[in-house]
Structures are given as structure tokens and as C-alpha cells.
Computed example of a mutant assay.
Amino acid sequence: MAGSLNPVKTRTALRTSARISLETLLVLLMTGVVLWILGQMWSVIWPLVVALLLTTLTWPPVRWLRKRGWKPALAAALVTVLFLLVLAGTVVLIAVPVASQSPELASGVVDGIQHLREWASGPPLNIGDDQVTSALDTALDRIQNSVGDIVNYTVTGVSTVVNGLVTAILALFLMFFFLKDGPRFLPWLARQLPGRLAVDVPTVAGRSWDTLGAFVRSQAFVGLLDAVFIGLGLWIVGVPLVLPLAVLTFVTAFVPIVGALFAGFVAVLIALVSNGWTDALIVLAIIVAVQQLEGNVFQPMVQSRGLGLHAAVVLLAVTLGGSLAGIVGSLLAVPIAALIAVFWIYVREQLSDPVPEPVPDEPAEVPAD
């Protein structure tokens, strides 16, 4: 028979549970306060985030120039000007044609979903339930709005997020200062902090910068490869709107897993509406082949260190970010999750006991003869 509960152990367990619950509530409260403060400061934080992301892309050429004797300000100025020229050329050569064809892209997606509805309502599926029809209508509206939003972000960039030109100019100025004075930041930060914080905070900041840079540069490179190969395949098959679809593929590459599925879905729908089932299946095969190359060849080669995040964590982060902040949240979800992982790994390292070094066995004494 089971014995009666020990009152001392019971009270101790209740006190421990109450203390842990209170501490958890306090942590959640402080997290909510911090998020609220960040939301109030979003007009400043968003240009800062954009500047950091751009700096991760433009820092390698600045570092290369500085190693060859260039002054920090001169190297940062040259790379910033070159970045602006590349950005302007991209707007003229790509964004303008994409903007002119974006209504066709959105209508093509809508027509493709209508084709799928008609096919699903006929044999052999014979789906005619009102709830299914309502769900398809909802998906139709959401995808149409999403395509418009993504094309909008692609065409107008940062300037659509917060007050347009002010945000873009502020982000560019911040990028220049980050490129010029970036290596001085961590030593300066260490001098400003007291005690152990002078070591912990710069260490976490340095690791976070390395992780963020690896993510942004690898995603940009892999997205460019995806856009080139998929765009080339669409051009060979004869699918219209090749340029908008290639740009959409590049942009959505910054949203792992979900972005590739969305861009592939849009490309297949356009091929279905314009060229029929045969070409749609060919486009689907091309996209699957390119995605397999990306997952098995491109990503391991480019992301040598990776983010250390499981695919399920990435998927949940993208879903949560999209539900909280739309497309911006989806774009920033994975980098934020990776930075949280960096912070957690460092805290775990500091709280873990050091692994004891093995003690060498003492040689056995040999008895004297």
C-alpha cells in the first residue's frame, strides 16, 4: 500500500513550484515590457535592423580593402557608393519591369487557383462541399494579397516599411558608420560595461554578428543560385513572367522552407494557367530538382557552420513571425531565433560545470627484489 504524503516534502514541493511560477511570470512580464518598448521604438529599430543586415552583406569587401591598407572611412565610402550604384541598377533593370508585370503575376496566381478549384470539383475528386469552397476562397484572397505585398516589398524595398525615404536614408547612413567603425564597437562596449558584463556582452555580440552574417550572406547567395537556375528553367519551358518569378524566388529565399514552397507554388500556377498541365509538371520537376540541389549541395557548401537550428524550429519561427508581424516578421524570424540560440548556448556554457580533466593513472610500484 502507498504511504501517506510527507507534509514536509509536500510543503517544500509547493514552495518550489510557487517560486518557479513566480519567477517565470516575472520573466514573461519583463519580456512583454521589452517587446512593448521595442514596438514603441520601431521607427528607430527598423532602420537599425536593416542597416545591420546590409552591413553583413557589404562588410567582406570593406574588410578586404582595409587589409590592403585602405583607410576605414575611404573603404566604407567606396563600398557604400558601389552598393548604391548596384541598388540603383537593380531598380532600373529589374524592379521596374517587375512592377509593370506584377498585376499579371497576381492575376495569374488567381487564375491558377481557379483552375485547381475546377479540377477538384470534377472527377475523380468531385469536391463540392461548401466549407472546402469557402476555404479555397479564403486561400485565394490571402495568396493574392501576399503576392501583392511581396511584389510591393521587392519593388519599393525598405521605403515602404516606415516613412519611405527617411528610413532608407537612415539605414544607409547607419550602414556606412557600421562599416567604418564596426571593429571599434566591441572594445568600446567592453569599456562601458562594469564587471563581468564587460566580457559577457561583447562575447555574445561577437557571436551574434558572426551568426547573422553567415545567415544573410549564405541565404543571399543560395537565393541568387535558385533564382538563376529556376529562371533559366522557366525561360526554356516558355513560361511567361520569368523575371518577376525569378525575383520572387530570390526574395523568398530569405524565409527558409516556407519561402521556397511559396515561390515554387506561384511558378507552377503561372505555368498551369499559361501553358497547361504538361508544362506545369515540367516546372514542378525543375523546382524540385533545384531545391534538392540547394538542400544537398549549395547549402552544405555555403553554410559551412549553419545556424544550429532544427528544421521544425525554423518552421515554427517563420509561422510565429508571420502571424505576429506579417512578411517582415517572416523575414526576421529565423535570424532572431538564431540569435536567441546563440544567447542560450552562451548562458548554458557559463552555467555548466567544467568537464573534469582525466587524472592519469599513477604507475604501479614495482617491489624491490
Rank of each mutant, 00 (worst) to 15 (best):
Q114K: 07
L248H: 03
Q299M: 07
I257S: 02
M41I: 07
T55P: 00
D200F: 12
P123T: 05
K180D: 05
A364T: 13
K71L: 06
L315G: 08
R305I: 01
V273T: 01
A289E: 04
N6W: 14
P354E: 10
V147L: 04
I143C: 04
T56L: 04
V151H: 03
R217P: 07
N275A: 12
R142M: 08
Q131W: 14
D361H: 11
Y346E: 12
G321M: 13
A18C: 06
V266R: 08
A135V: 11
Q192E: 06
G164N: 11
V237F: 11
D279E: 15
R305W: 04
L225E: 01
S146D: 04
A171C: 06
L193R: 05
L136Y: 03
A120K: 03
T154V: 15
P240Q: 10
G329N: 07
L172E: 05
R117D: 12
R142L: 15
G231N: 07
D361Y: 08
P367V: 10
W36D: 04
V50L: 15
V242M: 10
L28G: 02
P356H: 06
P356I: 05
V255C: 01
V201Q: 09
W70I: 02
V132P: 00
L331C: 05
L243H: 07
V255W: 04
L140I: 00
G264N: 06
I287S: 01
L232D: 00
V359A: 11
T319N: 02
T90V: 06
G112V: 01
F178W: 09
G128K: 08
A139E: 02
G259E: 08
L82E: 07
Q40H: 10
D141W: 12
V242H: 07
W36R: 06
G264S: 12
V8T: 12
A317I: 04
A99R: 14
V266L: 14
L82V: 14
Q114C: 00
L87R: 06
A120F: 14
A120T: 13
V158R: 03
